[in-house]
Protein backbone atom coordinates (compact mmCIF):
# COMPACT_ATOMS: atom_id res chain seq x y z
CA UNK A 1 0.00 0.00 0.00
CA UNK A 2 1.29 3.38 -0.91
CA UNK A 3 0.96 4.59 2.58
CA UNK A 4 3.61 7.27 2.36
CA UNK A 5 1.96 9.09 -0.50
CA UNK A 6 -1.15 8.98 1.44
CA UNK A 7 0.33 10.28 4.61
CA UNK A 8 2.37 13.21 3.43
CA UNK A 9 -0.21 15.99 3.13
CA UNK A 10 -1.73 15.49 6.54
CA UNK A 11 -1.05 18.32 8.97
CA UNK A 12 1.50 16.62 11.15
CA UNK A 13 2.17 13.57 9.08
CA UNK A 14 -0.07 11.61 11.39
CA UNK A 15 -3.60 10.63 11.71
CA UNK A 16 -4.31 10.80 8.04
CA UNK A 17 -3.43 7.30 7.12
CA UNK A 18 -5.61 4.92 5.22
CA UNK A 19 -7.58 2.64 7.48
CA UNK A 20 -6.87 -1.00 6.88
CA UNK A 21 -10.28 -1.96 5.58
CA UNK A 22 -10.68 -2.49 1.90
CA UNK A 23 -12.60 0.63 1.19
CA UNK A 24 -13.08 3.75 3.16
CA UNK A 25 -14.52 7.15 2.75
CA UNK A 26 -13.86 10.31 4.54
CA UNK A 27 -16.95 11.89 5.86
CA UNK A 28 -15.06 15.13 6.01
CA UNK A 29 -13.13 17.07 3.42
CA UNK A 30 -9.81 15.25 3.62
CA UNK A 31 -8.54 15.22 0.10
CA UNK A 32 -5.45 13.80 1.75
CA UNK A 33 -7.44 10.70 2.61
CA UNK A 34 -8.69 10.21 -0.90
CA UNK A 35 -9.38 6.51 -1.32
CA UNK A 36 -8.39 6.73 -4.95
CA UNK A 37 -4.81 7.23 -3.91
CA UNK A 38 -4.75 3.55 -3.17
CA UNK A 39 -6.60 2.62 -6.28
CA UNK A 40 -9.92 2.08 -4.60
CA UNK A 41 -13.13 3.18 -6.11
CA UNK A 42 -13.55 6.64 -4.84
CA UNK A 43 -15.64 9.61 -5.57
CA UNK A 44 -13.94 12.48 -3.85
CA UNK A 45 -13.81 15.49 -6.02
CA UNK A 46 -10.22 16.65 -6.13
CA UNK A 47 -9.78 20.27 -7.05
CA UNK A 48 -6.29 21.60 -7.35
CA UNK A 49 -5.39 24.77 -5.58
CA UNK A 50 -8.04 24.56 -2.91
CA UNK A 51 -6.27 24.87 0.42
CA UNK A 52 -6.93 22.25 3.08
CA UNK A 53 -9.37 23.54 5.58
CA UNK A 54 -7.10 22.93 8.53
CA UNK A 55 -4.94 25.69 7.08
CA UNK A 56 -7.51 28.08 8.50
CA UNK A 57 -6.41 27.44 12.03
CA UNK A 58 -3.29 25.25 12.16
CA UNK A 59 0.04 27.00 11.91
CA UNK A 60 2.28 25.54 9.25
CA UNK A 61 5.61 24.07 10.32
CA UNK A 62 7.83 26.82 11.65
CA UNK A 63 5.16 29.47 11.20
CA UNK A 64 4.75 31.88 14.08
CA UNK A 65 1.43 33.03 15.47
CA UNK A 66 2.44 36.66 15.46
CA UNK A 67 5.22 38.61 13.87
CA UNK A 68 5.60 42.32 14.09
CA UNK A 69 7.75 45.10 12.81
CA UNK A 70 8.06 48.65 14.08
CA UNK A 71 7.02 51.30 11.60
CA UNK A 72 10.14 53.16 10.56
CA UNK A 73 8.43 56.37 9.52
CA UNK A 74 6.19 56.87 12.52
CA UNK A 75 7.28 56.85 16.15
CA UNK A 76 5.80 54.30 18.55
CA UNK A 77 3.97 52.41 15.86
CA UNK A 78 4.11 48.79 14.81
CA UNK A 79 2.44 46.48 12.36
CA UNK A 80 1.50 43.08 13.76
CA UNK A 81 0.77 40.13 11.52
CA UNK A 82 -1.37 37.42 13.06
CA UNK A 83 -1.27 34.06 11.34
CA UNK A 84 -4.22 31.67 11.31
CA UNK A 85 -6.52 34.19 12.94
CA UNK A 86 -9.50 36.10 11.63
CA UNK A 87 -11.97 38.82 12.55
CA UNK A 88 -12.80 37.03 15.79
CA UNK A 89 -9.49 38.11 17.27
CA UNK A 90 -8.79 41.07 14.99
CA UNK A 91 -11.87 43.08 15.77
CA UNK A 92 -11.77 42.14 19.43
CA UNK A 93 -8.22 43.46 19.84
CA UNK A 94 -8.83 46.53 17.74
CA UNK A 95 -11.90 47.51 19.73
CA UNK A 96 -10.08 47.05 23.01
CA UNK A 97 -6.97 48.94 21.89
CA UNK A 98 -8.82 52.03 20.70
CA UNK A 99 -10.26 52.42 24.19
CA UNK A 100 -6.85 52.58 25.82
CA UNK A 101 -5.70 56.09 26.74
CA UNK A 102 -2.20 55.27 25.54
CA UNK A 103 -3.21 54.12 22.10
CA UNK A 104 -3.43 56.78 19.43
CA UNK A 105 -4.26 54.53 16.54
CA UNK A 106 -5.37 50.94 16.18
CA UNK A 107 -6.88 49.26 13.15
CA UNK A 108 -6.87 45.85 11.57
CA UNK A 109 -7.21 44.48 8.11
CA UNK A 110 -7.61 41.08 6.50
CA UNK A 111 -5.47 41.48 3.38
CA UNK A 112 -7.17 38.66 1.49
CA UNK A 113 -10.20 36.62 2.53
CA UNK A 114 -8.67 33.35 1.35
CA UNK A 115 -5.70 33.64 3.66
CA UNK A 116 -6.21 33.27 7.38
CA UNK A 117 -4.10 36.28 8.25
CA UNK A 118 -4.84 39.68 9.65
CA UNK A 119 -2.70 42.74 10.19
CA UNK A 120 -3.03 45.03 13.16
CA UNK A 121 -1.43 48.45 13.21
CA UNK A 122 -0.97 50.09 16.58
CA UNK A 123 0.45 53.49 17.41
CA UNK A 124 0.89 54.58 21.02
CA UNK A 125 1.69 57.83 22.78
CA UNK A 126 5.12 56.57 23.82
CA UNK A 127 4.31 55.72 27.45
CA UNK A 128 3.89 52.11 26.43
CA UNK A 129 5.22 50.30 23.40
CA UNK A 130 2.74 48.97 20.84
CA UNK A 131 3.60 45.44 21.93
CA UNK A 132 2.86 46.24 25.56
CA UNK A 133 -0.42 47.83 24.55
CA UNK A 134 -1.48 44.67 22.72
CA UNK A 135 -0.43 42.46 25.61
CA UNK A 136 -2.35 44.65 28.03
CA UNK A 137 -5.42 44.57 25.82
CA UNK A 138 -5.27 40.77 25.74
CA UNK A 139 -4.92 40.57 29.51
CA UNK A 140 -7.86 42.88 30.03
CA UNK A 141 -9.96 40.82 27.65
CA UNK A 142 -9.03 37.57 29.36
CA UNK A 143 -10.06 39.14 32.66
CA UNK A 144 -13.28 40.47 31.22
CA UNK A 145 -14.15 37.07 29.79
CA UNK A 146 -13.40 35.54 33.15
CA UNK A 147 -15.83 37.93 34.78
CA UNK A 148 -18.41 37.07 32.17
CA UNK A 149 -17.90 33.39 32.86
CA UNK A 150 -18.40 33.89 36.59
CA UNK A 151 -21.38 36.13 36.06
CA UNK A 152 -22.99 33.59 33.77
CA UNK A 153 -22.31 30.72 36.15
CA UNK A 154 -23.91 32.71 38.94
CA UNK A 155 -27.01 33.51 36.91
CA UNK A 156 -27.26 29.93 35.68
CA UNK A 157 -27.12 28.53 39.18
CA UNK A 158 -29.77 31.01 40.31
CA UNK A 159 -31.97 29.99 37.43
CA UNK A 160 -31.49 26.36 38.37
CA UNK A 161 -32.38 26.99 42.01
CA UNK A 162 -35.41 28.98 41.00
CA UNK A 163 -36.47 25.81 39.22
CA UNK A 164 -38.24 27.87 36.66
CA UNK A 165 -39.82 24.83 35.03
CA UNK A 166 -39.41 24.09 31.39
CA UNK A 167 -40.21 27.62 30.43
CA UNK A 168 -39.42 27.69 26.80
Amino acid sequence: MAVDIYESPSPKGKGGRMPYAHSSYSAGYAANKDPRVNGNVGSKMVVDGVPDRHELFLLADGEKKITFEPETRVPNAAMFTFNKEDHTLGNLLRAKLVKSPHVMFAAYQVPHPLFAVFKLRVQTDGDVSPKEAVVQACKDLVAELQMLDQEFTKEWELKKIAGAGADM
Partner: peptide
Protein backbone atom coordinates in the same frame (compact mmCIF):
# COMPACT_ATOMS: atom_id res chain seq x y z
CA UNK B 1 -15.27 31.75 26.68
CA UNK B 2 -12.47 29.32 27.36
CA UNK B 3 -11.57 28.98 23.69
CA UNK B 4 -11.45 32.73 23.28
CA UNK B 5 -9.31 33.10 26.38
CA UNK B 6 -6.92 30.49 25.03
CA UNK B 7 -6.63 32.44 21.81
CA UNK B 8 -5.75 35.58 23.75
CA UNK B 9 -3.38 33.69 26.01
CA UNK B 10 -1.50 32.44 22.95
CA UNK B 11 -1.04 36.04 21.84
CA UNK B 12 0.21 37.13 25.25
CA UNK B 13 2.55 34.19 25.48
CA UNK B 14 3.91 34.75 22.03
CA UNK B 15 4.41 38.50 22.44
CA UNK B 16 6.09 38.12 25.80
CA UNK B 17 8.97 36.34 24.10
CA UNK B 18 9.46 39.13 21.63
CA UNK B 19 11.29 42.41 22.07
CA UNK B 20 9.65 45.74 21.36
Amino acid sequence: IKTLQQKLATVIQQLSTTTD
